[in-house]
């Protein structure tokens, strides 16, 4: 696990180099969530809306929208696909994203239309970590760990 300015950056995930992380699953779907620096920048999340199961999304469209007292924004999907699962716990407790952005607070699982090219626009490994560190610096983020 890499860490920069207190922000955790797992090296085994794919990143869109902005808000989003992706994890390929054994069944060919991809789990999506937002990064530690992104949840820090958003502040304590108070509302989460996630697209319903069965919704088809074009690349770049939002699978979820999140709101805190000081911020609102979308969670864009880097590839076209269908929502096959969503984290219902986040609808009740969006703050979970601030506590466990890479584990319990996954947002949705999506079945890509074109599995061969679903990860064409995301990065992994040292290249991703370096770009995310630049992102953290650009937006002047210092991550704080939420415990509850």
């Amino acid at each position: 696990m890499s860490e920069y300015r207190g922000c955790e950056l797992p090296e085994d995930l794919f990143y869109d180099l902005d808000y989003v992380w992706l994890r390929p699953e054994d069944d060919g779907t991809l789990t999506i969530g937002i990064t530690d620096p992104a949840q820090t920048m958003s502040g304590r999340l108070q509302k989460a809306r996630i697209k319903k199961i069965g919704t088809h999304l074009d690349a770049g469209r939002h699978v979820a929208t999140l709101e805190s007292g000081k911020w609102a924004g979308g969670v864009p999907v880097p590839f076209a696909g269908e929502v096959i699962a969503r984290n219902e716990a986040l609808l009740e407790d969006p703050h979970l994203i601030n506590v466990a952005p890479y584990s319990d607070a996954w947002i949705a699982r999506i079945k890509p239309d074109d599995p061969q090219h679903a990860l064409d626009n995301v990065k992994i490994g040292p290249e991703a970590i370096e770009a995310l560190e630049a992102w953290i610096k650009r937006y002047d983020v210092q991550c704080m760990r939420c415990s509850e």
Binding site: R49, T65, E67, W71, A72, G73, G74
Partner: peptide, 10 residues
């Protein structure tokens, strides 16, 4: 309405 709420906050 959901989108409007988010956009107005942004």
């Amino acid at each position: 309405d959901d989108l409007l709420s988010t956009v107005q906050t942004i």
